[in-house]
Amino acid sequence: MHRSGNLHATLRPPVRHLPKAGLASPRARPWGTVDVVSTDQLRLRAPRHRVSRKSITLWTLHAVIGWAVLLVPQLVVLLFSRTPWQIGVAVATLAVGTAHTVVMPRWRYRVHRWEATPDAVYTLAGWLNQEWRIAPVSRIQTVDTKRGPLQQVLGLSTVTVTTASAAGPVLIEGLDHDDAVRLADELTTTTQATPGDAT
């Protein structure tokens, strides 16, 4: 087996400190910005826990409902009049809707993850567009669990962690209800133990 790549890796001293942004030879630009040569390869690791597998069902149901709202009126219209245009649009809706309903829930399930450490809540959500959210426990104001009708049927819950920011809460969707309640209790306890008014 050819091992030169791994050999290279073992010879390289482990890097323990993050490079400071902006140390690499700045070059002034006429509009007041400075070039930075990027050398580091930092990235966010995935949060530790996946959400419940039942979330796939939930997201599938959401997608089916959403597309049905678009498709059913079209079908009703088609009963009375059929132009090539209307048929074309209906078929396109059906095709896109089916693809979305099949792909999105599975993709989301592979992406959605969460983690709560004693210091922070860390989530990753989305599918095509993804977003990581980090809220330090010391800045948490409220922790709620919430279940919509579909979630109740499936035994799922959403945990909502709000901070003083107006930019919206950190959401963990699709947890098993018991897990959600346990997480909310834990977070509430640690939050209460932290002094300050979280702003």
Binding site: H8, L18, A21, R43, L44, R45, P47, E115, I134
Partner: peptide
């Protein structure tokens, strides 16, 4: 991506650090 994460990590020390990893060429 790397610059942005380094910026966030440096702005508030210790908040982002536990969730960061470094990707070398091989390791």
């Amino acid at each position: 991506e790397g610059d942005g994460l380094a910026l966030a990590d440096e702005t508030v020390p210790e908040l982002l650090r536990p969730f960061l990893e470094r990707v070398g060429s091989n390791a």
